[in-house]
């Protein structure tokens, strides 16, 4: 409780900013006489959104499922390939340049293809989320596992420890901070991937909802959908951040956060 009060006190500026932002939005619409079918005021978004809450929550669940499944698979595959590429010179000369060049293409461009191949269901969305998340994870993992300091390498060599032991005691924990850079970036992209996949072809989910209500000239409901998407994105990011805190309480960035 004490912590919560402290948090409120330290966060009062940003809270005030948000309140000011929504008040500005609300009253400038009245002041400038903006039609509500172009840009609705926050109060209307809240009221109409609440009326459609059941649907919004259900759709949030759908999009969350796609996002979380895709993100999880991307982490497993990304770490797996990242470690394999880091430790194999053959893969480093074949798969790695291949991945780097694919990273340059906007993955989302593949979305219509996957929809046409796999239909309207869950699978194509998950594939697209995996595709969007995989590359930042794998590229950061390769970087992470290749950047062990020269001194630490010499140190573990001088102990005669086995490869497996050095992996778990030195290489893996040393690589975690850079891996999390990839996870965070991928986490931000995950909801983007799911939403766009739903725009292109689906019959449920927040992306579907937003595209339908926008077509029906209901920007208020579109904003309500965007609000839920934002919450979903924040949750994914918060989860990654909490995992980071649990797995690496020692990390320097954590120490700085704790001190503030």
């Amino acid at each position: 409780m004490k912590k919560f009060i402290k948090w409120i006190l330290s966060g009062w500026m940003v809270i005030l900013f948000f309140i000011g932002f929504f008040l500005f939005w609300e009253y400038s619409i009245i002041f400038f006489d903006v039609p509500k079918y172009i840009l609705p005021p926050p109060s209307q978004i809240f009221v109409k959104g609440s009326a459609d809450l059941d649907k919004l929550i259900y759709y949030t669940g759908i999009t969350a499922l796609e996002t979380v499944l895709g993100f999880t698979i991307a982490i497993v595959l990304g770490l797996g390939f990242g470690i394999a590429i880091s430790f194999s010179s053959i893969l480093r000369r074949t798969l790695y340049p291949f991945f780097v060049s694919i990273e340059m293409t906007p993955k989302i461009a593949f979305a219509p293809l996957f929809i046409s191949w796999f239909g309207f269901g869950l699978l194509p969305k998950v594939i697209i989320v995996v595709l969007v998340c995989f590359f930042p994870i794998v590229l950061n993992a390769i970087l992470a596992f290749n950047s062990l300091s020269n001194e630490l390498t010499l140190f573990y060599q001088s102990t005669g420890a086995s490869r497996i032991k050095t992996f778990f005691k030195i290489r893996l924990p040393a690589a975690l901070p850079q891996c999390f850079v990839g996870f965070k970036y991928a986490g931000i992209n995950a909801t983007v991937g799911a939403t766009i996949a739903e725009f292109i072809g689906s019959d449920k989910g927040l992306g579907f909802y937003i595209s339908i209500v926008t077509g029906n000239m209901r920007p208020d409901l579109a904003f309500a959908g965007i609000f839920f998407l934002t919450c979903l994105g924040l949750s994914v990011f918060a989860f990654v951040t909490i995992m980071e805190k649990i797995l690496m309480p020692w990390h320097i960035s954590m120490k700085r956060l704790n001190k503030q």
Partner: peptide, 30 residues
């Protein structure tokens, strides 16, 4: 690599995820 040696560099080999004691024990564990 010789293993009956102890080695120390200008840039030390302490790992940030272990305490001072944990770092000394790392040598033993390896």
């Amino acid at each position: 690599p010789k293993t009956d040696i102890g080695i120390m560099f200008q840039n030390n080999t302490l790992v940030p995820w272990r305490t001072v004691k944990g770092n000394i024990e790392l040598q033993l564990e390896l």
